[in-house]
Structure formats: C-alpha cells, structure tokens
C-alpha cells in the first residue's frame, strides 16, 4: 500500500509492503519514514495540538500540545478531557499542564510564555 509520510513537510510517498518477515518500506528519504510506516499500519499515532482555557483576561486560551504521540483513536477522548482543563497560572513554554494525559504516557505542555501581554 502507499502512504504519505507525515513526519516532516517533505511528504515522502512511501510504498509499504507487509511480508512474513515484517513490514518493508521504500520511498523514504530518512529513517523516520520507516518508523512512521510501521506504526501507521500497526498502531497509528498522532501528536495533538489544541488550546486550553485560562483564567486571565486578555489571554482567553493558551496553546498546548502533546510532548509525544498518542494513539490516533484516543484523540477525541483527550480533546474532551482538555475542555475541562483551565490554566490558572502564568505557565512558561514547555511547562507540563497535565502529566500522563489519560494514561497515554504522554504529557500536555504549554507552548507559549503566558507572561506576555495578552
């Protein structure tokens, strides 16, 4: 099967073949393409970027992201959970706002310095 690698903007067109010996990948410009293709045909993962509410006037939402990839099928559940999270202090970029979100082993981090003017 053919897959487009989404690891970086190169968008390599990968040819993926499932064989008895495992998964054979061609068309990748770097080795990250192989890891991506194997995961994509076994247990697809995605990073998630979104926002959380804050308590600060003039700064209604703060951007966040997963600091790793989570199973693709968990995205709706993580989004629903993050709707309940409120940033109530002035976090810095990189600070963890929720650790091990929904037992994925991945943290949600703030991606901006919230001490700037809103």
């Amino acid at each position: 099967m053919r897959l487009v690698c989404i690891v970086c903007p190169n968008s390599c067109l990968l040819e993926v073949e499932k064989t008895d010996a495992g998964v054979k990948v061609t068309g990748n410009k770097c080795k990250r393409g192989i890891t991506f293709a194997i995961e994509e045909v076994t247990a697809p993962k995605r990073s998630l970027t979104t926002t959380v509410r804050t308590v600060f006037e003039g700064f209604p939402v703060a951007p966040v992201r997963t600091n790793g990839e989570i199973p693709k099928e968990k995205i709706p559940a993580v989004m629903a959970y993050l709707k309940t999270v409120v940033a109530d202090k002035r976090y810095k970029a990189g600070d963890v706002i929720c650790g091990n979100v929904l037992d994925t082993g991945v943290d949600i981090i703030i991606t901006i310095d919230m001490d700037q003017e809103g």
Partner: peptide
C-alpha cells in the same frame, strides 16, 4: 506564528517538531 498552534515548525532548524508559538518563542526570548 502567535496563532499557529499546530506543530511541524523547526524540523530543519532545530531538528524538532515545534508548534509555531514555540518556534517564535525561541527567537522572542
């Protein structure tokens, strides 16, 4: 970049997949 909360920024420059906000933050600092 303030509103580019999605990731994929900085792969070439920093070898990391940053959000637009984080990419900007490194320069702002």
């Amino acid at each position: 970049l303030k509103q580019c909360i999605h990731d994929g920024f900085g792969v070439i420059r920093f070898g990391e997949k940053l959000s637009g906000c984080e990419y900007a933050q490194r320069f702002i600092d």
